[in-house]
């Protein structure tokens, strides 16, 4: 019994220690751009208020995107995006929760460019899908710039494109992510 108690205490200590050294990097003004290429028109929207945190110890990585903060060239498109397609009043945020699977190959304390495999769960409009994408981390002292470009099929997230605008909106949109992460104190 006695050695068990010691084990318990030790494991708690290990977990606490783990929390202490866990180093988080965060941003509130990350950028997500999406680009839809269709026969009649190309649509681009940019969101510069993306929140993200990464734990460089464990490789855990989360994002949160306020859907209302996407800006379009045409104001009417922005209104339709929020009102008809994303329904921002019902689903205000999109989020990603995942981890870097090749964390062993990335040394966040040494400046340089690293290729990262990221997998996790992307939630848009309350629909959660497992995704696995490749990105890069550019480490520069106290700052880490995370970058990735990938495709998302809008149908995966129950976004219906009416037949009247099938030539205006692409079925698969290209998503670009850029998050300048800063060391948290």
């Amino acid at each position: 019994m006695k050695y068990l108690k010691t084990l318990l205490l030790l494991s708690v200590l290990v977990m606490m220690y783990h929390d202490v050294v866990a180093q988080n990097y965060m941003t509130r003004n990350g950028m997500i751009r999406f680009y839809s290429e269709a026969p009649l028109e190309n649509i681009e929207a940019v969101n510069r208020q993306v929140s993200s945190v990464i734990n460089t110890e464990t490789g855990e990585f989360v994002f949160r995107v306020v859907m209302r903060s996407f800006n379009f060239e045409k104001a009417l498109m922005q209104e339709h995006f929020n009102e008809n397609y994303i329904e921002s009043h019902k689903y205000p945020n999109a989020s990603f929760q995942g981890r870097i699977t090749n964390i062993d190959e990335i040394n966040f304390s040494v400046p340089g460019e690293y290729v990262a495999q990221v997998e996790g769960e992307l939630t848009i409009r309350d629909v959660t899908r497992s995704i696995s994408k490749t990105g890069t981390f550019i480490v520069n002292g106290e700052e880490i710039l995370g970058k990735s470009t990938f495709d998302i099929a809008v149908a995966d997230y129950n976004i219906r494109i009416p037949t009247a605008v099938v030539n205006n909106i692409a079925e698969v949109v290209e998503v670009t992510v850029e998050v300048p992460l800063k060391k948290m104190n």
């Binding site: 734990n55 855990e60 990585f61 929760q97 981890r99």
Partner: peptide
């Protein structure tokens, strides 16, 4: 449980 909660922990941090 502790490791499973970690990603959620980062979300809470946000």
């Amino acid at each position: 449980f502790a490791t499973g909660l970690h990603a959620q922990g980062l979300m809470d941090l946000l």
